[in-house]
Simulated scan of single mutants.
Amino acid sequence: MKVEIWSDIMCPFCYIGKRKFEAGLAKFAHADTVEVQWHSFELDPNMQHKPGQTIHELLAERKGISVAQGKQMNDHMAGIAAEVGLQYDFDRVVPTNTFLAHRFLHLAAAQGKGNEAEERVFAAYFTEGKDIGDLDTLAQLGADLGLDAAEVKATLQTDAFAQQVRYDEYQAQQINVRGVPYFVFDDKYAVSGAQPAELFQEVLEKVWEENHPAPTLVAGQDSAACAVDGNC
């Protein structure tokens, strides 16, 4: 079974949704058969990094509220994240454009490190206060995953994997993705948002049952058989 996930690194609900999906997957009896494929989505393709600007200030600017109110909203989000074991530190978050980071995620996926890279970049952004729009930072994150830092940096200095990011975004448009996280199960069912783990488990089981239907008994064939209680 394939599960495709569209997400953006700067989306707080995407990291939370990742944890909830993982919790549902852990309860799924056939978890070892599930292939997870991540797709890029940019919530703000025109986002520009402003040195020194905090995420509280950015939120206040966009919402037309005070910085104190922006911080209050982020503190509330941190509380939601804590419920699934994540430690968001919005005081350290570096607001930045995520396009380069998405290219990095595709690079890592091409080397078999897709899931690990998603986790590493989310943690770097929401917990560690790293600038995931910085080339050297991404090279170091690559090294953390066992990739060659110099190779990562050299690759990202070209336009490598830019086309893959754009194609992900094109696919999102074709299936009418309006927000992230967005989960698609075997091209059959979609789940939008950081839904409860139980819902993810339910969808996984539904898709499994549809892909592995029980045999249908032809009427009348049970008349010449022995039952499980030994009666023949």
Score class of each variant (00 low, 15 high):
3 V>F: 09
14 C>H: 05
56 H>P: 12
188 K>T: 15
146 G>D: 06
28 F>A: 08
221 Q>A: 15
25 L>K: 12
216 T>C: 06
109 A>W: 11
142 G>I: 12
108 A>R: 02
44 D>S: 07
145 L>K: 00
101 A>Y: 11
2 K>A: 05
59 L>Q: 03
114 G>I: 10
179 G>M: 11
218 V>Q: 15
160 A>P: 02
85 G>H: 14
173 Q>S: 08
94 V>T: 14
106 H>S: 07
151 E>H: 09
64 G>C: 14
210 E>L: 14
154 A>G: 01
213 P>A: 15
106 H>V: 08
222 D>F: 09
213 P>I: 11
121 V>H: 08
1 M>E: 04
117 A>H: 00
5 I>Q: 03
157 Q>I: 14
174 Q>A: 02
110 A>Q: 01
36 V>R: 00
74 N>Q: 11
187 D>L: 13
104 F>C: 02
122 F>L: 03
95 P>M: 10
200 F>T: 05
211 N>C: 06
213 P>V: 09
221 Q>F: 15
50 K>R: 14
220 G>E: 07
58 L>M: 07
171 Q>L: 09
165 V>D: 05
88 Y>W: 06
119 E>K: 09
31 A>V: 04
106 H>N: 14
184 V>G: 10
186 D>F: 00
20 K>L: 12
228 V>C: 13
191 V>E: 10
221 Q>N: 15
202 E>C: 12
131 D>T: 05
57 E>H: 02
204 L>P: 08
207 V>Y: 06
47 M>K: 11
85 G>N: 13
166 R>W: 04
100 L>A: 10
13 F>H: 09
177 V>A: 07
8 D>G: 14
28 F>Q: 15
34 V>H: 01
44 D>T: 08
30 H>T: 10
174 Q>R: 07
89 D>V: 14
135 L>P: 04
215 P>M: 11
72 Q>N: 01
106 H>D: 03
13 F>G: 03
17 G>Y: 01
208 W>Q: 05
63 K>G: 10
61 E>C: 04
6 W>T: 04
31 A>I: 05
230 G>F: 14
109 A>K: 08
130 K>M: 07
85 G>W: 13
88 Y>S: 02
60 A>V: 00
24 G>C: 13
224 A>W: 12
22 E>Q: 13
134 D>R: 07
161 F>C: 01
157 Q>N: 13
29 A>R: 04
61 E>G: 00
33 T>Y: 05
97 N>S: 08
108 A>H: 02
25 L>A: 03
218 V>N: 12
109 A>E: 09
151 E>S: 13
189 Y>S: 10
232 C>L: 06
190 A>S: 09
119 E>R: 12
166 R>F: 06
144 D>I: 10
163 Q>D: 10
176 N>T: 13
62 R>A: 03
157 Q>V: 13
150 A>W: 01
44 D>H: 03
91 D>E: 12
136 D>H: 13
163 Q>A: 14
76 H>L: 15
127 T>P: 05
52 G>C: 04
110 A>N: 06
155 T>P: 06
223 S>I: 11
74 N>C: 09
82 A>S: 13
77 M>C: 14
122 F>D: 01
156 L>A: 10
131 D>L: 07
186 D>S: 00
207 V>P: 00
40 S>K: 00
227 A>T: 09
105 L>V: 02
111 Q>S: 11
47 M>W: 02
219 A>W: 03
116 E>G: 00
181 P>M: 02
144 D>M: 14
21 F>W: 08
